[in-house]
Amino acid sequence: MRLGSILMVTVPSDPDDDTISDLQVRILSSMEGSTALGLILDISTVQTVDSFFARTITETVQMVSLMGGITVLSGMQAAVAVTTTQLGLTLGSIPTALNVDRAMITLQHLLEERRLS
């Protein structure tokens, strides 16, 4: 779904590895084929973040960044945040937000900061 210059992607709740890898490819081709400067990755329905998921998401954010886009990770469930941290995953320094509404605000701030710099 495209909202102005922002691409919003909802990650399915219990994706297998292939689905996550496909999603990465689709995100990158969407970024390429659009004027989107920012990406909101909505993981609010995701119940399990394991190391494969985390690595693919971290990679995707880096790839989007190389293509000139800024990503905000949105909606991680509390139980998932606890588990991800105890598992030892940091997800790098990806900007995060509690929900999609806040992610939009965060992303607009980040895009504005970059426009001014």
Binding site: D17, Q47, T48, V49, D50, S51, F52, Q77, A78, A79, V80, V82, T83, T84, Q86, L87
Partner: peptide, 17 residues
């Protein structure tokens, strides 16, 4: 509870992989 369920399923995901 939900947090322990998430811990168990995540550990299971790592080890099945």
């Amino acid at each position: 509870g939900l947090t322990d369920v998430t811990r168990i399923v995540t550990a299971a995901s790592e080890l099945s992989r």
